[in-house]
Structures are given as C-alpha cells and as structure tokens.
Simulated scan of single mutants.
Amino acid sequence: MDEFDLAVAEHRAGRLDAAERGYRSLPESPKVLHNLGVLLIAQERFDEAEAVLKRVLELDPGNGPSAFSLAMQLLARGAYAEAWPHYEGRRRQPGLHIPSIDHLPEWRGEDLAGKRLVVLGEQGFGDQIQFARFLPMLPPNAGVTYVCSPPLMRLMQNRHARLAPGVVGAAPFQGDYWVLLGSLPLRLGVTLENLPPPLPTPVVWRGRGGGVGVIARGRPSHTHDAHRSLDPASTRRLLGLGLDLAPEATGARDFADTALIVAGLDLVITVDTSVAHLAASMGAPTWVLLPRRGLDWRWLRDRADSPWYPTVRLFRQREAGDWASVLDEVEAELAALGLRKGA
C-alpha cells in the first residue's frame, strides 16, 4: 500500500487529522488535492476547501468531481454567479447519471424565437420541483417541453410548461435544442438576488385546520441520506407530532396526490427531501430539519430562512447527529403555536 492509499484508508476510517497529514506529505496532484478538499469540507474548513479545489481545476480543468464539489461550496455561501459554470461538472460526477439528447444540439443561449426547446429534468424529485421555477424565464415565443420524472407530471401540468412523459432515450424527443434543467440558471444569469418564485402548482395551499404533516426519512439511495434522515428513535418522535406524509402511509400515487393532502394542512415538518420542495412551492408553512454533516447547498449556511422559498423555516443541527435538540426546538415551537396532529 503506497502513501496515497494509506492516507485514503485513514480518511475512510474517519481519522481525518492523520489523513490530512498524509495528503499534505504527497506531491501536489489532482487526485491528492481533490481528496484533501473533500476532507476539509468534512471538517467545515470551507474557505480552505475552496482554495484547494480551485487549485485542482488549475491543474486539471476538466476534473468534473472537483468542479462539482467547488460548485457546492460556492452555492452554499451564495456565490451563484461564480458557482454555476462549475456546477456543469455534475455531468462528469459518478453516480448522478445526468441525461442528454444525442440527436439535438444543446442550447447554450441561442435565440429561441420560434424554436422548440426540450428541457430535461435531472437528479432528484426535489431538484426538479425546485428548478422548474426557471421555465417561465425562457422566451415566451419558444415552444418548451419539460421532460420530468413520471411521478411529477400531474403536478407540473400548468400554463408554463408542456410535458413529455417517459425516460430520456425511450423516445426521440422532437425539437430544435435541448438543455438540462440544472443548466438554466447558468444560461439565464440567475443569482441569489434575482431568484424567481417557485413554479405555481395546480394545487394551492389553503390551510384549513388540518394540523401537521411530517416526513422523517428521505430516499435511502441519496448520497447523504444517512445524515439527512432521522434515526429510528427520532423518526418515532417526529411521527408522533403529525400525519405521516410518506406515500406508503398515505397511499398517494404521485406528487399531485400528496399535494392535495398538503393543501389542507396547517404546517409541514420534514427532513431535507422532495416533500420540502413540494410543500414550500405550494406556499405551505414548511419546517425543514437539516443535518450538520452532508448539508445540501440549497439551504445555504447559518440562516433560518430560505431565499428559494418564502414560507420555509430551517431547523439546523448544532452538533452532527443530534436530532434530539432539533426536535426539542420543534416541539417547543409547535406548543407555542397550539398546532395538533394532522387528521
């Protein structure tokens, strides 16, 4: 085992100080610096991590994982204009499976007057709900087909987008250009200061005394699910506060069905998963429980609100893995509001 492998072994074992010493003792190279950047992020040394990841890209401009990791750090501190070009590195990030259309040219800002644009949804359900807000920013004289995941189709049917069903590659989508949904902020010049509101949904929150709905766990295959989902004891505690909104509990067939349930609730309390984006897009008061480690970029750092969603309130772990204190805070706030369990 060489010195790099030894440092990686220390890293995987959680002995970060030893791993850092190992990485820093090695000659400078993209793979060593990338691992060091990931380590620094885990230690919340974000400024140092940014500098290291930028150095990787100086040495290897096509390094997708480092570009993507750098984008996450820039987005998390609100540097959107600087971040979006690096966010394109997600296309070369193993495990993300970013789609494309081979038989059409990719749209990179060309005039769309009278043209047909195919917008490909990507990544998770929450990403597709969150980024759909950029569709109305496209020129009104362009024909837009938004290809989203099937469970989102009924939710997304509205005056802003014509939807095409199915999985990319299953049909020869017709159009003049295609673009990734996650690339629209780059193409459209989106910053933290000019974020548009969420895309209107067919169902609007009305909040008629339906109580509280909760989601305790996200999709297990998510990279950071071990951090964002509640442990069994905390799950039981949260489920005791409200109606379980998980599809297996409600029988919801898709997000439109879940939206109908959310529409009658007073409040949604959820971990960082797609229902947070659904409820917040509907205008429902939404409390999002956030982990200390593996925190997603879109919630930024050290704030209790979200520029993406006016009705969101963020409850953050102070110590990694400590959901108990987060739930203490939630329960105290619920008691002050006098809210009850959903019916």
Rank of each mutant, 00 (worst) to 15 (best):
D102E: 14
W84K: 00
P61H: 06
V56L: 04
A132M: 04
P94K: 07
E122C: 12
S66M: 10
W107H: 01
P65W: 02
G114S: 09
G78K: 06
D111T: 03
V32L: 03
E48Q: 15
D47C: 04
F68L: 10
G124N: 12
P94E: 12
F46S: 02
G89C: 11
E44N: 14
L33H: 05
Q130R: 12
L39N: 02
E44A: 14
S29Y: 01
Y23C: 03
P99D: 12
S69Y: 02
I129L: 15
P30L: 00
D127I: 15
Y87S: 01
E48G: 10
K115V: 01
R116V: 14
P61R: 08
L112Q: 07
M72Q: 07
K115R: 10
E58P: 02
D60L: 03
A113K: 09
E106H: 04
Q93C: 13
Q43C: 10
G89Q: 08
D127S: 15
S25N: 11
A132L: 02
I41H: 03
E106R: 14
Q130C: 12
A83Q: 00
V118D: 02
R92K: 13
S100W: 13
Q128W: 03
I98H: 04
L39Q: 01
I41L: 07
L39E: 01
P105G: 01
Q73W: 00
R133E: 10
H97W: 07
D111M: 03
L74K: 00
A83E: 00
D127C: 15
A83R: 00
R108M: 01
R108C: 02
L96W: 07
L39C: 01
H103W: 04
V52R: 06
R92I: 04
G78Q: 10
